[in-house]
Nucleic acid binder design. Structure first.
Lengths: 213, 213
DNA sequence: CCATTTGTTACACTTGGTGCAACAGTACAC
DNA sequence: GTGTACTGTTGCACCAAGTGTAACAAATGG
């Protein structure tokens, strides 16, 4: 009989998975994505190459293996929102809360190769990132369609989803840029909140007036 | 001395390029993307494998080698619009004009493997498509930022660009779906125009009220 | 006709990724 | 405990995408 969780087998499997991911990312950060081969990763993690690919279907997945978190958060902003909150409100709240990533961003920036540096400038990793993004949009769009009771094929849910995720991403990027440029948490937080209000002001009132004359 | 165009060498080069692309796409349509190797393409086009990769950096580029067209069209909607037209107006016009793709869609649908079938369901091609898309968004965002006189790092142009391109894509998909479901050009055109108005109505008036209660 | 440029080729090589059969440790039933 | 089914890991052979390089051949310009 199969057992789903809690067993010793499951535990070891997860350990192996984590070990592989950690080993790989340490190597990537030290030397860059393309400069590390899967054979090396396997050797460093003392595991066979086949095992690496058993856990991660592609080399890129070794970098993005936590992408589900972001997906879950975006989705929760839709499904678990308090009564009276519009979806736009929820996403605004989600974006305002991005300031909690500031410490992590600061930590990331001291690395010789930040996570961002790793991804940006590497075509295959950028592709993978867009893929992850697109998946989030799709999931969100489905949730929106369900809530709106949209008929199948209705393009609106997808457009709204793509807009919201796009806004979230752009604001995240902007925030990281602000952190990179320096300043206290308070200053950055204030500026970020202003960004969020500006963006959601536009989204709330319509794009027709953009750019302003 | 180098010569940019018109020479015999240039001509032959373009011929080779076209030949390779045509041969490849014919094979892809006949048997599917993964079921055709680059070696086969090279053999069928009577060209060396290296030559294929000289013209197209990746196998996926053989499918998307016309992507620049879409990019140019989206960009023109911003830069070449008549006075008094907002960007939103231009994109609405661009989306309304999508009905001109209906004949092409009809032709595509009779193929054993339509272009859409080729891409959808193939992870690497989907990734490539998202990459192309993201590039269009970036180019458009830059144009928007320039026009709006936005300061560097401003997230707004990117968000607007991502929304507009997302809308364009979703409406295109919807249109193709309508074509697939059948109906006269008039019926489909009418339905499409209604879709466009609905979408741009929402974008013009703000997303706050979505979904309606 | 000669010299230069440049697209094409052959070939060896690296690397990501798969399929398969064998192996080893875990789970479980008795 | 012991046997047995399950499942994660392994080694290995193999495929295909993509690169580097040096040689080749056609076009260009003088």
């Amino acid at each position: 009989m199969p057992m789903s969780a809690g067993g010793l087998r499951e535990l070891k499997k997860n350990r192996t998975r984590q070990l592989i991911a950690d080993t790989a990312n340490a190597l990537f950060r030290a030397r860059g994505f393309d400069e590390v081969t899967v054979d090396e990763i396997a050797a460093a993690a003392q595991v066979s190459k086949k095992t690496v690919f058993n856990h991660f279907p592609t080399k890129e997945d070794l970098v993005f293996y936590r992408a589900e978190d972001r997906e879950a958060m975006s989705l929760a902003a839709v499904t678990d929102r308090p009564a009276g909150f519009s979806i736009l409100d929820s996403f605004r709240a989600l974006c305002l809360a991005q300031t909690r990533f500031i410490p992590g961003m600061r930590r990331d920036l001291v690395h010789p190769r930040s996570f961002f540096d790793l991804v940006s400038g590497n075509p295959s990793l950028e592709r993978k990132m867009h893929e992850v993004n697109e998946r989030i949009i799709r999931v969100l769009a489905d949730a929106l369609a369900a809530e709106a009771g949209a008929e199948p094929g209705d393009p609106l849910p997808r457009i709204v989803a793509s807009t919201l995720v796009g806004a979230q991403r752009a604001l995240y990027r902007r925030l990281r840029q602000r952190v990179r440029e320096g300043g206290s948490d308070e200053e950055i937080g204030r500026a970020h909140r202003a960004d969020v209000e500006r963006v959601f002001g536009l989204l709330g009132n319509g794009l027709g007036g953009y750019p302003p004359v």
